[in-house]
Each structure stands twice: as structure tokens, then as C-alpha cells.
């Protein structure tokens, strides 16, 4: 599903969304009154401390768990009205800590991203092959395509998973901590890769991350979950609102407005 080049096109929006978990007895709310819009070509970071509900929000938007109330619209279509089999053509995922088989070649793994489009036996058409090759070259892995995923480094394997999502060819890509396990250079490399993907393809990427400093430098928008509340805006807007001031305990980490980075507080006494 390709997106027309319309920079103001809204790909994902939520209105009065509440997320959390419910079973027969309890309702555990994680965050309420979530309102944001992600436009085509935007790179959006989802920031929050451990346990704040980043994964819950991603799971809710990707249809893995139901919302408690409110609406999620993808491509102006209500998520709750979208059948599971059509979801794969609308959004794709990049997950960490999944038990992904590495006994596949790079090409085979990326080609699995074409699952929503292939016939009942999963045979690749000419178009599928083109999309797979395109995805591989976007993450610069075309010369490794016949290598086994086992032989790759963590950083390269992360690129394979991103290429799989690209091959799925959806307007929206959701990622859960795509830079964990990576060194400082590869964190920066992957985030810059994401930035170039959204700029060149008019796709939108929403990724949960703990890389706040990098996200502040690079992302178009930031969704901040802090203490059940969700704040949304450009990095500058959030800084001006003072949204980051009380994110961490002040004895440990402070936000330096001048350099727009978080710094560890080292006591001088």
C-alpha cells in the first residue's frame, strides 16, 4: 500500500484514548486522555521511564490488546473496525526480544514481510521480489542477502528486522525499542536510518525508546508518557512546556535546557 506524497496526510490519530489492562475483576489504567496525530513522513519517539506504559500504548495501537476507551484511527479508519487480516497491510512492527528464528537467510527473513500480500502458499511474485530488494538496499544489506542471519552482528540483525517491516510496505511502522543492545554508534546509525526512511518514503515511524537525548535531536515529534499523562508535541514545544523538568528524580538526572540534553547529576560535596 503506497502513500501519496501528501505531507499533511494524517496516518495515525488517537482521541480520548485510555490504555491499560482489564480482566473479569479489575481494570488497570496505564494512561488516559491520549490525543495525538502522526502525519506522513514523521519520525516520532515514544518516551517514558520503565513501566510508564510505552509498550502498552504500542500494543494497543497495533491491535494486539484492546483499548479501555477512546478511538484509534489509522489512515482515517477506526482500528477497532479493521479485520486482523487487513491490519498487516496497514501497519508493520519491529519488536525486540521476540524469539525470531535466525536459521533463515537475510533474504528469506525479509521476504516473510510480504506475508499479507502473497498467495496461500506464500510464493513471491515479481512485485514482492522488487519490494524485498528495495527494502534490503534501503538498509544497505543487499550484498548480505544470502548470508544466514546467524552470522550477523546485533546491529546488522536489527537492520534485517527493519528491512522486514519495510518489505511489508505499510504507511505506518511501529517499533519497540529498536536500539536496545546496540552500542552508541549503532544507536545513532539506526536512528539516522529511520529518519532517512521517513524522509524518502513518506512512511511514518513511531518508536518507543530510552534514547531521549538522541530523540530530542532527531525526531519530528515526541510522545511523552509520564505519570499516567501523555504530552505530545515537537521537541521544542515540549521543552518550552517544561515537560522534561520532572521526568527523573532531580538528585540523579537533570534536564539542561541550554544544551537540550539530560545530564547525570554528580554531587560536588
Amino acid at each position: 500500500m503506497s502513500t501519496e506524497l501528501n505531507p499533511d496526510k494524517i496516518l495515525l490519530s488517537t482521541s480520548s484514548l485510555s490504555i491499560g489492562y482489564k480482566d473479569k475483576r479489575d481494570v488497570i489504567s496505564v494512561a488516559e486522555a491520549i490525543n495525538f496525530e502522526i502525519k506522513a513522513g514523521e519520525l516520532v519517539a515514544l518516551i517514558g521511564i520503565n513501566g510508564s506504559g510505552k509498550s502498552t500504548l504500542l500494543k494497543t495501537i497495533s491491535g494486539q490488546i484492546p483499548s479501555l476507551s477512546g478511538d484509534i484511527k489509522i489512515n482515517h479508519q477506526l482500528l477497532s473496525e479493521l479485520p486482523l487480516k487487513d491490519l498487516g497491510a496497514v501497519l508493520s512492527l519491529v519488536l525486540t526480544n521476540e524469539h525470531v528464528s535466525k536459521q533463515l537467510t537475510v533474504m528469506e527473513l525479509v521476504a516473510l514481510g510480504r506475508h499479507p500480500y502473497t498467495n496461500w502458499l506464500g510464493n513471491l511474485s515479481q512485485e514482492d521480489l522488487e519490494k524485498v530488494n528495495q527494502a534490503l538496499s534501503q538498509v544497505d544489506l543487499i550484498q548480505k542477502k544470502d548470508k544466514s542471519c546467524e552470522s550477523l552482528s546485533d546491529g546488522q540483525f536489527q537492520k534485517v528486522l527493519i528491512a522486514r517491516a519495510l518489505a511489508q510496505d505499510t504507511a505506518l511502522i511501529l517499533m519497540d525499542e529498536p536500539t536496545t543492545h546496540l552500542d552508541m554508534f549503532h544507536k545513532a546509525y539506526v536512528l539516522k536510518l529511520l529518519k532517512s526512511i521517513v524522509k524518502n518514503s513518506q512512511k511514518s515511524i513511531l518508536f518507543a525508546s530510552h534514547e531521549i537525548n538522541l530523540a530530542l535531536q532527531l525526531c519530528d515529534k515526541i510522545i511523552l508518557i509520564d505519570n499516567h499523562k501523555v504530552t505530545y508535541g515537537s521537541p521544542l514545544e515540549l521543552i518550552q512546556k517544561g515537560a522534561f523538568d520532572a521526568l527523573f528524580p532531580k538528585d540523579y538526572i537533570v534536564f539542561d535546557e541550554h544544551s537540550r540534553t539530560f545530564k547525570m547529576k554528580i554531587s560536588e560535596d
Binding site: S62, Q64, L84, K85, D86, L87, G88, A89, L91, S92, L93, L95, E98, H99, V100, S101, L104, L109, L112, G113, H115, P116, T118, W120, L121, G122, R164, Q168
Partner: peptide
């Protein structure tokens, strides 16, 4: 044979498989 395509999707783990439309 009917399951072959979904078996391949399961190689990515259940969450990925579900995200691509596998019931």
C-alpha cells in the same frame, strides 16, 4: 499443506505472525 505459509510466519514469533494477519 494448508498451514505452510503461516508456519513460515511463525518463524518470526507469534507477535510478528499476528501483526501480519495470522489468526
Amino acid at each position: 499443506i494448508f498451514c505452510l505459509k503461516n508456519l513460515n510466519a511463525l518463524l518470526l514469533g507469534e507477535n510478528y505472525a499476528k501483526s501480519m494477519g495470522v489468526e
